[in-house]
Design a protein around this nucleic acid. Structure first.
Lengths: 250, 250
DNA sequence: CGGCTGGTTGAGCGTGGTCAAGTCCAGTGG
DNA sequence: CCACTGGACTTGACCACGCTCAACCAGCCG
């Protein structure tokens, strides 16, 4: 019934081996428990609907199954800063475990499927699934590292470097190929601007340049990069912070 | 012997009740255990010396006793982004508990006294000190919230708002009075620039304006603000994220 | 005393913002 | 099936916030 939300076309590439994706850190037994628990809590959201609202108490831990989530904070005057994305396989509101209220708002970028785990459900699962606790902590640590990298990004990088860096990050997280790869990319130029602290107009201009210079282009909600190495060099991009468990691309 | 590093003069103001300061969250018994443990691990650093180095494995958890620490990440070409400050009473390298290597470098802003807790020492202390685990988690959560606020800061606020916001944050954290208060402030204009993603020249000009407009001035490593309310409004500053456990200043 | 770090100020300039118009496309309803 | 609508993208002209470069000063420490 939900399937028709998602038009036919290329499926997501095989997720990279970053430990930010919980399942990558679970052994077969644990992984099975994890996945059946997820299938039980499945829900869906339409584009723009909220999974969490800043200032409200956390209700459930969400695990993204299909679609992306954006997290942001908004000032009274409407200015908005994106704080991160959640991709399929990531947990979204780890806040559940330690904050009284959410520190950000999370909304669905497009139509979305995710599993909602209540606090009780999660605690029971943690008992049965020995490796899950460590996996959640690892994922949270990597999320924090990414957020720190975003701070570095908007703090000291130029507009071009910033955009290049974010493209590299999202490309590598999804296991994009060094050589002419392509990954999902459902993010608008306006959202890119809100993530990078610049206007969508400027994002557009830079994107146009990157298309010519590195063969990096967003089309049909997919990101293709032909010269990843050059783009990564432009961005001063070092993927170490992503916690990827494999031979690095060079 | 270390005392003469710290010239006579105003002592730090009573720390605010933010849970980022560990002792604020401990009951009397626990607090006593905590403080005696700290006194045992005491060490000192001279201005500029490193407590932690990016990429190296964490050695000890540091609890600041006197002086400030700056945490930063640096790009190969030398550009540097400050990620946060550690004030007396804060823990510094919680990374110890969950990362294989440090994600940032931490150096002493001035001469510094801090307690170093080894991993083993910490684990033993956690056993004996029932409330400590929760206190550490709370402090870590607030640190994360502050870092998120810094991202919002450099992302969407103007230069003036950014600087005003940081001044407010450090003022409130130290329990600064709404009405003509004064707190420690050992940070140079260059460091402010590195924290805010702007040049020291520009920090200087804005600081000059604030002095005239809000009576906010840094002198002798102290920050004085006469019209805190106006400055906070300029900054769109909402102290909720600091986890302060008291009636708010209005 | 001299050197160094940090603060102050000026002149000129460039990255990126603002405002505005117009195009393209997917989704919706007649 | 097609017209309409709204969201996202594109492009241009203009402008300003904040950077760069540079010189100078004040205070501190060796």
């Amino acid at each position: 019934m939900l399937e028709n939300w998602f038009p036919p076309g290329p499926r997501p590439t095989a997720a990279a081996r970053s430990s930010i994706f919980i399942a990558n850190r679970l052994e077969n037994g644990d992984r099975h428990l994890w996945e059946t628990a997820l299938s039980r809590g499945e829900r869906s959201w339409r584009k723009g609907e909220e999974l969490a609202v800043e200032g409200e108490p956390p209700g459930a831990l969400h695990v993204i199954l299909e679609g992306w989530v954006q997290k942001y904070r908004q000032l009274p005057d409407g200015r908005r800063q994106l704080l991160g994305f959640c991709l399929p396989g990531q947990v979204c509101d780890i806040d559940l475990l330690r904050r009284r209220v959410h520190g950000h708002t999370a909304t669905a970028i497009g139509n979305l499927r995710a599993a909602a785990l209540t606090r009780d459900g999660l605690e029971e699962l943690l008992d049965r699934c020995r490796g899950l606790g460590a996996a959640l902590i690892d994922a949270d640590t990597i999320s924090a590292a990414i957020q720190r990298e975003w701070l570095v990004n908007v703090g000291i990088r130029s507009g071009r470097e910033r955009l290049a860096h974010l493209l590299c990050e999202l490309y590598v997280l999804q296991g994009g190929d060094v050589d002419r790869g392509e990954v999902d990319f459902p993010v608008t130029q306006g959202q890119l601007g809100e993530a990078l602290g610049m206007t969508s107009v400027h994002v557009n201009r830079i994107l146009r340049e990157f298309q010519a210079e590195y063969g990096a282009a967003v089309q049909q909600r997919r990101l293709a990069i032909s010269d990843f190495g050059a783009l990564a060099r432009r961005a001063v991009f070092d993927p170490a912070y992503l916690g990827i468990d494999s031979e690095k691309p060079n």
